[in-house]
Simulated scan of single mutants.
Amino acid sequence: MTAAGHRARKRFGQHWLVDERVLDRILAAAELVPGDRVLEVGPGRGALTERLLAGPLQDLVAVELDRDLVAGLRQRFGGDPRFHLIEGDALEVPLRAEGVEPPTKVVANIPYNITGPLLERLVGRLDRPVQPAYGRLVLLVQQEVGERIRALPGSSACSALSVRMQLLARCRSVCPVPPRCFAPPPKVMSEVILLEPLPPQELLAPAVARQVESLLRRCYASRRKMLRNTLAGVLPPEDLSRLAAEAGVELAQRPQELSPAQWVALATGLNRLSCVPTSG
């Protein structure tokens, strides 16, 4: 079966982007230059693959789970020596081809049902960022996820994901993608986002990263509660008030009102206090 004749499979979350203008926006956001090595997750029927291979890239590593689509992709692009196809789950298979240097950029149409795990695999965690990082990632995601990733403090979309991603990468929107741009159309709005991972010198120290993660889990588990309630028991009340004041945080605030920098300040102060020996 050819990729062109393939029917979308719901269990794979398949919705193929067919809008030429959006495809062009994705390509423009990737800013391909000679020597680039690109990882494409979910090439599907090859609409974006064709555009990528028409550019100046050095290699294109495509990861596709659907074996019927794999056959069509091999038939269509297998003659190009720059094209390297990996069949399998992007959460499990190596994201580089044998004998080829690792990719430097990512272009991905992320199935909505694996967005979180795949983001972690491509960007990493606060305490374990992907190294070496990709130069840039152009990702097609559900619009709700895109809004959460770049949400500002005080926004209803602000979440633990917002803090994690903004401490790992610079995040911005490229363009909205309505359902009509896909075949078959999904039931939700989508969005193309651009992530530019921070250089190593701007990433958190491991101990601070672990403490930020611990605070995010604790506080966002009860996002409607004030910090004085979610952080009760972390420190004696007087120490907690002093820590909050030093971090520029009000204990009457809720977690979604804090900026990434304030979470880092809380974590740094908490680590410092935990290292102070008790008297007696």
Rank of each mutant, 00 (worst) to 15 (best):
L119M: 15
V141A: 12
L140E: 04
L119V: 09
W16Q: 03
V234R: 03
Q142W: 01
E191L: 14
G116M: 08
D19A: 12
S190M: 05
L251H: 06
Q201N: 10
T2H: 08
V234F: 07
S173I: 03
K105R: 15
G46L: 00
A207R: 08
T104M: 02
T268M: 05
L231P: 05
L215W: 04
L23N: 02
A209G: 11
L27M: 14
A8C: 12
Y112C: 07
P236F: 00
V123K: 00
T278R: 05
R172H: 14
F77M: 02
R172S: 15
L137S: 06
P277S: 11
Q75V: 03
E250I: 00
I86K: 01
V38D: 09
V174N: 13
L85K: 02
A62M: 08
P111D: 12
K225F: 02
L194P: 03
A232R: 14
L17A: 14
L140F: 02
E213L: 00
L57F: 02
E191M: 15
V264L: 10
I26C: 13
G116T: 15
T2Y: 02
L139K: 10
G154H: 07
L126G: 06
V249E: 10
S173Q: 10
R217G: 12
Q75L: 09
S274E: 04
K187G: 08
A108L: 04
E238W: 01
D19N: 09
A183S: 15
P277A: 13
R74Q: 13
V38Y: 04
L216A: 08
V234A: 13
A47E: 14
K10P: 01
E250R: 11
P176G: 11
L118D: 03
L32T: 09
V130H: 08
R210P: 05
I110W: 00
R21G: 10
G55R: 06
E120G: 10
V177Q: 01
S214Y: 03
R11Y: 01
L161K: 03
K225S: 07
A265R: 12
G124L: 04
R254C: 10
D239R: 07
R172N: 09
I114H: 06
A183H: 07
A3L: 09
K225N: 09
M165I: 15
G124C: 09
A245Q: 14
L32M: 14
P200L: 13
I26E: 14
S214R: 14
L216M: 08
P237K: 03
Q201G: 04
A160P: 00
L137N: 04
R217Q: 15
G72D: 12
A265I: 11
P185S: 06
E257R: 11
L215S: 07
C181Y: 00
L17C: 13
N271K: 05
R7Y: 12
E147W: 11
N229E: 05
A244N: 06
R136N: 10
G5H: 12
V188F: 04
L126P: 05
R51I: 13
G46V: 03
L273C: 03
R164A: 15
V100E: 11
V141S: 10
T104R: 02
P197W: 08
G88N: 01
E31V: 01
D19S: 02
V192M: 04
A245L: 07
G55T: 11
L48Q: 06
V276I: 15
V192H: 05
A8L: 11
P277E: 12
M165Y: 13
L258E: 13
V41R: 06
P197M: 06
L227H: 06
R74S: 11
K105G: 12
E191T: 11
L52D: 12
